[in-house]
Amino acid sequence: MKKPFGRKSKEIDESNVKKEKVEETSLVDSDYNRKKLFKKGINLMADEKLEDAIVVFEQALRIEPNNIETLMKLGYARFHLEDYGEALKIYDKILDVDVTNPEAWNLKGLVHYEQKNFSKALDSVDKAIETDPTYAMAWYNKACFLSLLNQVPESLESLKRSIEIDVKNARRSIRDKDFSNVRIEEGFKRIQEVVVLESVRQGYHTLGSIVWTTFLDKADAETALRKLLEKGLIVKNEKRDGLSRIPIYDLAPNVAEKLGKEKKGLFGITRKTLPKPVKNLKELSQAIQSVRESIEEEDLEKTIEIFDTFIDPAKSGEQMIENFFDEHREIRLWKIRLKDRGEEYLIENKEKMLVLFGNIEATITKKLRNEISYSADKSQ
């Protein structure tokens, strides 16, 4: 049997199970037993004890048969045990409860993908995209399925769309065998240029380091670098290495200002220099404090109102998309659910919301410290 968590990245990107132990609390509420079983199941999945996790999730479902969160993890465990028939039944049950659940549609598509039924897989991810047009992984999977169906132009368009939403999908596509039908196309060559440009932006300046970080063949990397030079997106210089000189590449000044740079520090850790003007992280942090209070107080109207701060591009939406894209999508979906289901949905998802905003706040605090430290270093 395949190692359960060693599958393709596209299969687990949206349902990643972190190798973390979930602490059990002694909080007493009407749903305590289900939550306790759910957390136990997550811990078992983290230990790759999927059969045991399935037993526990099924026990939790006896308490609340239509709990989406539990059903999703049960389907995920069945999927990784290659019990595709049962996984499909579970995803269909989720969609009976919530036909607009994009993750369930995407995962259903991956089951059909494993069964080599690419037409059905394509239909499923199309429904995921209809529900959430910014679902990058669904667009990526759609590109894979279209390639396997030999619909080359459509595959490239979907892949480009997925990269526009999440640039990491460009690098992911380089070694994905599902794109063997489109790899020779000029459109795919341009995607290789995106991958190389991103590598340079992250601070990898030599051909060897670019090949290493992008997984491109040396010839493809050289071709991409030449095209980027011709377009004026990068510049080429040389540095001395003993008696010889090595070509080094960097972003053209105007591109660097627009994209920002990531410079490698000690131990290979990168630190991003945000493009000017620097976003107002303090305002975002204050909004997070306000929304956490409203969630704690279970104030539905106030929570929906503050959510708009994180979604509206005229407020902090643009900054959220730039720095917290996945979280931005989650908040947007939460806002829709809150309007549809009201206070009950807020109470059910209170803990999840608080965790997400707590994580964002921790990241923002770290970014603020880095910015202050970096500004101080530059002024010396």
Results as ranks from 00 to 15, higher is better:
residue 170 A to V: 01
residue 250 D to H: 12
residue 95 L to S: 06
residue 224 A to R: 06
residue 123 D to I: 09
residue 241 D to Y: 04
residue 19 K to V: 09
residue 219 A to G: 06
residue 128 A to Y: 04
residue 134 T to E: 11
residue 63 I to H: 00
residue 196 V to Y: 05
residue 361 E to C: 05
residue 18 K to Y: 12
residue 222 E to P: 06
residue 110 L to P: 00
residue 98 D to I: 05
residue 311 I to D: 05
residue 133 P to V: 02
residue 253 P to M: 09
residue 201 R to Y: 03
residue 271 R to W: 13
residue 202 Q to W: 09
residue 325 F to S: 12
residue 292 R to T: 12
residue 9 S to N: 08
residue 125 V to E: 00
residue 22 V to N: 14
residue 321 I to F: 13
residue 355 V to H: 09
residue 85 G to M: 12
residue 328 H to Q: 14
residue 62 R to H: 09
residue 168 K to W: 08
residue 91 Y to E: 05
residue 58 E to V: 01
residue 143 A to D: 04
residue 312 D to L: 10
residue 29 D to V: 10
residue 236 K to Y: 12
residue 204 Y to K: 07
residue 88 L to G: 01
residue 89 K to G: 04
residue 136 A to K: 07
residue 301 E to V: 05
residue 292 R to C: 12
residue 341 R to H: 15
residue 135 Y to N: 10
residue 194 V to A: 06
residue 337 R to Q: 11
residue 307 F to Q: 12
residue 57 F to R: 02
residue 288 I to G: 05
residue 227 K to M: 13
residue 310 F to Y: 00
residue 179 F to V: 09
residue 361 E to G: 09
residue 141 N to V: 06
residue 1 M to R: 09
residue 366 K to L: 13
residue 303 T to L: 04
residue 17 V to N: 02
residue 32 Y to V: 08
residue 284 L to E: 04
residue 110 L to D: 00
residue 107 L to E: 01
residue 12 I to H: 06
residue 253 P to K: 03
residue 54 I to F: 05
residue 283 E to K: 15
residue 237 N to L: 13
residue 19 K to F: 10
residue 306 I to D: 05
residue 302 K to M: 08
residue 351 E to R: 09
residue 171 R to M: 03
residue 29 D to S: 13
residue 16 N to V: 06
residue 257 E to K: 13
residue 110 L to Y: 00
residue 357 F to Y: 10
residue 113 Y to K: 01
residue 330 E to V: 11
residue 161 R to V: 08
residue 259 L to E: 13
residue 355 V to T: 10
residue 173 S to C: 08
residue 201 R to K: 14
residue 351 E to L: 09
residue 135 Y to F: 15
residue 313 P to L: 13
residue 276 K to A: 14
residue 164 E to R: 09
residue 354 L to D: 11
residue 306 I to M: 07
residue 113 Y to E: 04
residue 201 R to A: 02
residue 79 F to W: 08
residue 69 E to M: 10
residue 25 T to D: 06
residue 189 K to A: 07
residue 351 E to Y: 07
residue 158 S to V: 02
residue 238 E to N: 12
residue 290 S to E: 13
residue 129 I to T: 03
residue 80 H to Y: 14
residue 248 I to S: 03
residue 366 K to N: 12
residue 285 S to L: 09
residue 157 E to F: 07
residue 108 K to G: 02
residue 92 D to G: 05
residue 40 K to H: 05
residue 226 R to H: 15
residue 4 P to Q: 10
residue 86 E to M: 11
residue 326 D to V: 06
residue 361 E to F: 08
residue 99 V to I: 08
residue 353 M to K: 03
residue 313 P to K: 06
residue 369 R to D: 15
residue 177 K to C: 02
residue 165 I to V: 13
residue 47 D to R: 13
residue 271 R to V: 05
residue 373 S to W: 15
residue 374 Y to N: 04
residue 171 R to S: 03
residue 143 A to Q: 04
residue 377 D to P: 01
residue 353 M to P: 01
residue 203 G to Y: 09
residue 135 Y to L: 11
residue 55 V to A: 10
residue 93 K to T: 11
residue 183 R to F: 11
residue 374 Y to S: 11
residue 141 N to D: 04
residue 69 E to C: 00
residue 80 H to V: 00
residue 256 A to D: 10
residue 175 R to H: 03
residue 243 L to W: 15
residue 316 S to M: 14
residue 118 F to Q: 01
residue 60 A to D: 02
residue 32 Y to I: 07
residue 282 K to G: 06
residue 121 A to S: 07
residue 121 A to F: 02
residue 86 E to T: 10
residue 31 D to S: 10
